[in-house]
Amino acid sequence: MTRAKLLLYAVLALGLLVVVGPFVWMLLSSFKPEAEIRAVPPTWWPHTWTLGNYRDLFSRLDFPQYFANSAIVAVLVTAGNLLFCSLLGYALAKLDFPGRKALFLAVLGMLMVPGMVTFVPQFVLISNMGLANSYAGLVLPFLAGPFGVFLMRQFLLSIPDDLIEAARVDGAGEWRIFWRVVLPLCKPALATLGILTFLASWNNFLWPLVVATTDDKYTLPVALALYSIGQNRAYYGLLLAGAVVVVVPVLIVFLALQRHFMRGIATTGLK
């Protein structure tokens, strides 16, 4: 190995340490008793191993229910985004219709509006529709988003028109072109959009907190916040064990889609 390469690896290793360090500490500390977590200076390897934090977590929370809620919401939201954002993205990128430019500008405009501004009106709207405390209320507002539309449009622009023309010449209808020709080419972008939406939905805290008025509709992040932070003190053991439990499914999704994800980011030129 050359000197330059060694140096490169050293720098990369350092970067890895900085990024992964807190994560490893979280994982290890979730097996420590409360007093050891709070110890100053902090320890890496647990002196006393305990499963108490996890036992506490699983016995105090109706875990299967919250996990199922989170999964249902995240899967529906992701599926909705993949479908609707690619449809609209396709229309904006490849179809010629009056008002296309205005529609695209409207999408861009929506990207600029912070979610907090629309939060309360959206909740009032959902509850006036009678959807408070329902899965529909948890899922509906997130089925499509301006970011997804924008991402899909940018990717679809890179697909050559000739391909679509050729399909049209061969006698394929618009639906068939979209399903059979365009979508299969979009896999990297769909993987990117899928993982970003899944993550956002999985981690979403405020919306489910407010929309779910009874705790059987809580999602994991809301449920984990229930007992880990009190009025005057935080229970770090519970907090860390909960964080580990929330992160694991996300890790699995990411590892499964990682290859596509990297390509998607590279080809759309988005970060």
């Binding site: 907190l209 705790d215 916040a225 932070i229 009025q231």
Partner: peptide, 9 residues
Amino acid sequence: TVTAVPWDS
């Protein structure tokens, strides 16, 4: 019927 709410939020 009691619904638990996180303190923080």
